[in-house]
Design a protein around this nucleic acid. Structure first.
Length: 569
RNA sequence: CGGUGAUUAGCGCAGCUUGGUAGCGCACUUGGUUUGGGUCCAAGGGGUCGCAAGUUCGAAUCUUGCAUCACCGACCA
């Protein structure tokens, strides 16, 4: 490609709306343009990268013997009613009507469509196991799209689904997909980690996320500093302390704490260690048979944070998690939110494992502006249940039993699930088994955010001059930058000949034939992140050489024109 | 959905306090100049000042409403 025929559209200045570096560079390097909130047009340079990512993903899916298909983006609502997700999915699911007023949705994912397809097309156990995938545009009406294509509403995704007669077969395919994902992210040249994950609203049992490690990531990942254990903080278990709880040494004492509400207020006012306090959160429980909503108290050590996923997974707690309203708090505890405590509280009390190990601690007294000190479990407050409720924090023992937890930020670029029979049951997806009986299939589901990977790769590979693409996904493998081509026939001839050679060898090469000054050309190619710049100038032509500048290392060297192809072997 | 802020040329911004019909830098066009790191000079083109209503002789500027965009939070495979 010649720049004279190519839509470069680089920008010197950063559009004000771009917050994270990948978004800024994608706009500046001319990869995407914004159309509306969460909607982006892919320009030629961006599309080249997107296609390269897509092809690597496709090749590795094909290696697992998955079949590529393409499903419609618009899906009939009755499929979603059948699976129950018409009610469960929420406003993220964009719903629309056709001209006959028939309801449809814009597909945020395709479990319903594929399960229906397999139910209709596959009828015998002999056709199993079966893996199907597609690479397709998804739409999710995100509350707050942000970070450019990292969290957009319309985005490109690879989604794969596997179908099995038995769970052990599903587990085999799950492992195959896990390995395929590792190969994909290896080939993409990204620093990534597979992590244990919560399977979330999509349902099912085992689940891993694949995260690209980057400061701008939206997820916290807990790692062991010794083993290869990694889990999303949502999922990472906070182990119970191993030390015995100390015996009580203080009497239960009620102290006045005027205008003290938050844990920080308490520690300041009473001059105590935050680790000797507990906080009590009231949440809605599962509805009783008579339709009333019980209130549940969750107790955490003052410095810890509630893990909402863990709370939701408790059988007594309503899903989705809902905090008690001020009125509910008043009727359950007879005080404001800042003064609740477990002592004498007439609701179900669930205490975090670490909070349960405290003795002589401080908590609210269920009376405005009053706290208890010297509180001890059993003596002052019995009939409690102990559970893992909190987020792990750095320094906690790793759940794998080896080492301590460290926490890093990650961008979720892949997610694999063992779904089980949830959708197959709902959509009546069965085959005849060996015994001639109908048997419900068990399923796996495997997603990769193609467009998000482009942004994640930039987050991980950039410098002050622009993007530094891993070679596998660079929009161009090389750029030819001639020096003063307009004046030098030799430079022009050499550059043209080199361009022809590279093209004939199927190298993605951009020939900068603009009548621009060198600095302008260098700056543009560095911004776009082309791995190799081939600089053709009079000064090296007598020796039949061009200058090679490596974008990743920044090294400049001379290379014989005849040897240029060796860069790409 | 709550909180905050923004909306003036393709991009980045000034002008608004104190109302008088719009400006700067980059980009773009033309001519010249320069040519191994974003040259310099000159001349140009481009804006219903987000939309609507109001106040006024007169509104980018004041008032009200609406829309859109972004950030923080909640939300989220």
């Amino acid at each position: 490609m010649r720049t004279s025929q190519y839509l470069l559209s680089t920008l010197k200045e950063t559009p004000a709306s771009a917050e994270v570096i990948s978004h800024q560079l994608m706009l500046r390097a001319g990869l995407v343009r914004n159309l509306a909130s969460g909607l982006y047009t892919w320009l030629p340079t961006g599309l080249r990268v997107l296609k390269k990512v897509e092809n690597i993903v496709r090749e590795e899916m094909q290696r697992t013997n998955a079949n590529e298909i393409l499903m419609p983006m618009v899906q009939p609502a009755d499929l979603w009613e059948e699976s129950g997700r018409w009610d469960d999915y929420g406003p993220e699911l964009l719903r629309l009507n056709d001209r006959h007023k028939r309801p449809f949705v814009l597909g945020p994912t395709h479990e319903e469509v594929i399960t229906k397809l397999v139910a209709n097309v596959v009828s015998s156990y002999k056709q199993l196991p079966l893996s199907l995938f597609q690479i397709q545009t998804k739409f999710r009406d995100e509350i707050r799209p942000r970070f450019g294509v990292m969290r957009s509403r319309e985005f490109l995704m690879k989604d794969a689904y596997s179908f099995h007669l038995e769970d052990d077969c599903l587990e085999k395919t799950y492992k195959t997909m896990f390995d395929a994902y590792c190969r994909i992210f290896d080939r993409l040249g990204l620093n990534y980690r597979p992590v244990l994950a919560d399977s979330g609203s999509i349902g099912g049992d085992a689940s891993h996320e694949f995260h690209v490690l980057a400061e701008s990531g939206e997820d916290d990942i807990a790692f062991s500093d010794v083993s290869d254990f990694a889990a999303n903080v949502e999922k990472a278990e906070a182990l119970a302390p191993t030390e015995q709880r100390a015996e009580p040494t203080q009497d239960l004492t009620k102290v006045a704490t005027p205008n003290v509400a938050s844990i920080e207020d308490v520690t300041d006012f009473l001059k105590v260690d935050i680790k000797n306090t507990v906080k009590t959160l009231l949440v809605c429980g599962v509805e009783n048979e008579d339709g009333t909503t019980p209130i549940i108290a969750l107790v955490l050590r003052g410095d810890h944070q509630l893990n909402e996923i863990k709370a939701e997974n408790l059988p007594q707690v309503a899903t989705p998690l809902a905090f008690a309203t001020d009125d509910q708090i008043m009727s359950a505890a007879n005080c404001k939110a800042g003064s609740i405590g477990p002592v004498g509280l007439d609701v179900k009390v669930i205490v975090d494992r670490t909070a349960a190990q405290l003795s002589d601690f401080i908590c609210g007294a269920n009376e405005n502006d009053m706290h208890f000190t010297g509180v001890n479990w059993e003596r002052d407050c019995s009939d409690i249940e102990i559970a893992d409720l909190r987020n792990v924090v750095e320094g906690d023992p790793s759940p794998c039993g080896q080492g301590k937890i460290i926490i890093k930020r990650g961008i979720e670029v892949g997610h694999i699930f063992q779904l089980g029979t949830k959708y197959a049951k709902a959509m009546n997806c069965t085959v005849l088994n060996e015994g001639g009986k109908n048997q419900t299939l068990t399923m796996g589901c495997y997603g990769i955010g193609i467009s998000r990977i482009v942004a994640a790769a930039i987050e991980q590979n950039h410098d002050e001059y622009g993007i530094k693409w891993p070679e596998a996904i660079a929009p161009f493998q090389a750029a030819i930058v001639p020096m003063n081509m307009a004046k030098s026939a030799r430079v022009k001839e050499t550059a043209e000949a080199l361009y022809e050679t590279l093209k004939q060898n199927n190298i993605d090469v951009l020939f900068d034939d603009r009548k621009e000054r060198p600095g302008v050309m260098f700056a543009d190619h560095e911004l776009m992140g082309t791995p190799y710049l081939l600089i053709v100038g009079e000064r090296n032509l007598d020796a039949q050489q061009v200058e090679l500048k490596n974008r990743i290392t920044g090294e400049k060297s001379l290379i014989a024109i005849d040897d240029v192809m060796s860069l790409f072997s």
